[in-house]
Design a protein around this nucleic acid. Sequence first.
DNA 1: GAAACGTGGGG
DNA 2: TCCCCAAGTTT
Length: 384
Amino acid sequence: MLDLEKYGVTMWEDEKILSFRQKLLAWYDENKRDLPWRRSKNPYHIWVSEIMLQQTRVDTVIPYYERFLEWFPTVETLANAPEERLLKAWEGLGYYSRVRNMQAAAQQIINDFNGDFPSTYEGISSLKGIGPYTAGAISSIAFNLPQPAVDGNVMRVLARLFEVNHDIGNPSNRKIFQAMMEILIDPERPGDFNQALMDLGSDIEAPVNPRPEDSPVKDFSAAYQNGTMDRYPIKAPKKKPVPVYLNALVVQNAKGQFLLEKNESEKLLAGFWHLPLIEVDEFSKNEELNLFNQVAESSIQLGPSPQESFEQDYDLEVEWQDSHFEEVKHIFSHRKWHVRILSGQVVDSKEYCDKEVVWLTPEEFDLYPLAKPQQKIWQAYLKR
DNA sequence: GAAACGTGGGG
DNA sequence: TCCCCAAGTTT
């Protein structure tokens, strides 16, 4: 057992702990939100909701949750879903490895657990994509096991209750909050206790504009009593996304079809389809001039233009258009894309290319999973 | 342990 | 516009 005193945390006496549980759960019973996944104890449903809720708001999740269970009503249907369908179900939600990991976990359940959702903390933890938070959440909510579910909300609430002087953004400090929760959690209603803290943390004890005076447990809160609410939780600022400059090539053939390519990367937006993208160091002001006037000259100094690289890589001959499109910007957690659109008509195609490409009419776009940047690029193209 | 991994809402 | 944030996990 972790020695909390070593981390400057003095745990309450037993009596105070009992009183806290009572106060918090009474508040939860009166104020809990009516959410779709709270009407179910089916571990598969709880699992789907918990994965979707990772780093994602409740309002965003609800429609995705409903549709996901229609498309994949059971672990088995999820295990056997084709990739395109899987990504389509998650299209727009972000952090797409979540759904890939879910499918891998569904296959684990079929193969290693005889198709039955594991009912122990250890078994649940063994599933792909389930870390300590999610294992605790499913264990406590679906199986009534006394396991803490320590997420950002819980750490923020606890940091204020106990004036914890450790950065909640540092993963190694998670163990402090885990140890506190192991003592505080209500053994009779662990799922409700965990969810009560999360509800409290997402609204009344929100990260910005909290209303601590409305908290049902303000009498327990050291930070509230000492007037130090603004100091907690301690959290280092995040790094800014790194700018990336890209040219998107929108090329159309004689049939009015556009070239799309599957992202074979295992990383960013893996498996999604996109208009071909060519990264450049930076946008230069004379780039547009290069296109029409100075291709040969610029090639010597700057290397091939994006258009030349594209025609070479895709074995196409393209007549480029002199169109100007609005720059598309898209911010990821770690990158900021600046995308310029270049458009043209295919003059000649060698009908061969080593990339996985497809020619689609705009009506057919819906059949393929397209992430947000691509949707933005297409909209900007249409606006012209 | 730091970095990668999406997107949308709100001040 | 910019910045922060949201029910994290994997590598």
